[in-house]
Design a protein around this nucleic acid. Sequence first.
DNA 1: TTAATGTGACTGACTAGTCAGTCATTGTCA
DNA 2: TGACAATGACTGACTAGTCAGTCACATTAA
Lengths: 248, 248
Amino acid sequence: MSNSRPTPPEGTSSKPGHRRRGETAAPAEAVKPALPMAPPSEPPSEPLSGRAARAAERRQAIIDAALDEFIARGFTATRLDDVAKRAGVAKGTIYLHFKDKESMFEELIRTALVPLIGRLHAPPPIGGSVRDAVEGFARTFIQEVASTRRGDIVRLIVAEGPRFPAIADFYYREVVSRGLAAMRALIELGVARGEIAHKELARFPQILVAPALIAVIWQSLFARHAPLDATEMLRVHLDLIFGERRTT
Amino acid sequence: MSNSRPTPPEGTSSKPGHRRRGETAAPAEAVKPALPMAPPSEPPSEPLSGRAARAAERRQAIIDAALDEFIARGFTATRLDDVAKRAGVAKGTIYLHFKDKESMFEELIRTALVPLIGRLHAPPPIGGSVRDAVEGFARTFIQEVASTRRGDIVRLIVAEGPRFPAIADFYYREVVSRGLAAMRALIELGVARGEIAHKELARFPQILVAPALIAVIWQSLFARHAPLDATEMLRVHLDLIFGERRTT
DNA sequence: TTAATGTGACTGACTAGTCAGTCATTGTCA
DNA sequence: TGACAATGACTGACTAGTCAGTCACATTAA
């Protein structure tokens, strides 16, 4: 703590110096169970001989560890020493896989979103109703994003986006604009079929998606104060847009 | 710049070494004009004699500068040296007004929200319609938050909330829970009066507010890619909830 | 054997927080 | 009113660290 102040022999475990240091042994605390992902270190059990395979495995461990740390602390506050420790790897190893901290962060965000992007090419509802299609999206979103580490990634993008224009650009191009376009198409189809009464909605597909984003943010910030039943909320929202309940 | 690497005499302005350093002279770049606030340094023109007055003025300068820096960089990446420079003050002066960086951040966030909280006690729509009341909220929100530095503060809370539970708590207690309660009351009134057809909406006032939050986030992240007419979007959203257009 | 792979001690650029000293302002007395 | 003393806001060089990135050396699969 202070320089030469006559402080008592031991600070009461308050903040020792600059940033909190204590027990760095457990980086980013427990963070959160995240999804049932392979344990950060150690090979699961497979023998897997090839060096390339082991290297890929280590790379994956680094990615998992780094994501957890970045989610828990944000970009700047994350220490690569902690990432390495959590991944069960030496710090130098990180630099065998990534150019530097910044490009690692960007690549992580990109990689974590690829699975999301795939879902946007969902088949247009030729057979079923538009509502079914939108409900499918919502269900997928809840399962794959809202109740997953990927939800935190969305929050991370909101948090760090302004300082990483490249990430904001990428996210807009690859996710936001495509997602909104898909939603707009669905809305227009819904209007054409008479499922959606409010025609103006097609001008702002954001309205359709807004509660889903709220759910993600709520999860990160306020879940411990007041849990939010995202599934129910999205259902109510869809009822609002498509008219009262159906059979479901 | 790297340690002993044979780098060319001057990096092409890319990343010199650790964090970006270049031209620290202008902290946080231009950030953004923000609202028409008093210039960071120098007394505007008033004589203001008293020492206390000058001190208060400096304190305000520090607050403004710190908010700009925190918004532009986030908590950890903000350097108090830059805050001091921007405020036209020595670094030590900051510590005459704030205990440390962390409590400064927390106090700033709290302070910046106080004006918001006041708006929540808006008069219930005894005379006018519920829609008018909600529209009033929306208009206020656009004017006072979405198109203001306060919008960035909301994003900042989303960004740093998980690392500052005290802030998330405060924000939930003072803003979110109150705001949602007020909205719920309005919705129930609207349902009772027959202005709102969808009764379930009262269970999730978040749906009413969601597009407003989206607008704020959009402003920070994607405005340069695709501008969003927040006013129009909120109007469409209200049409969706209250039924088609009125006279306005 | 040996080249690819991994390690972790090390460097040095960087920063939160400190404190002895300065000096403009305010208060007091002749 | 003017001179002198007391005050405390303000300063900025300094301390005690922190951490991204490096590299000489160790390990191991082929």
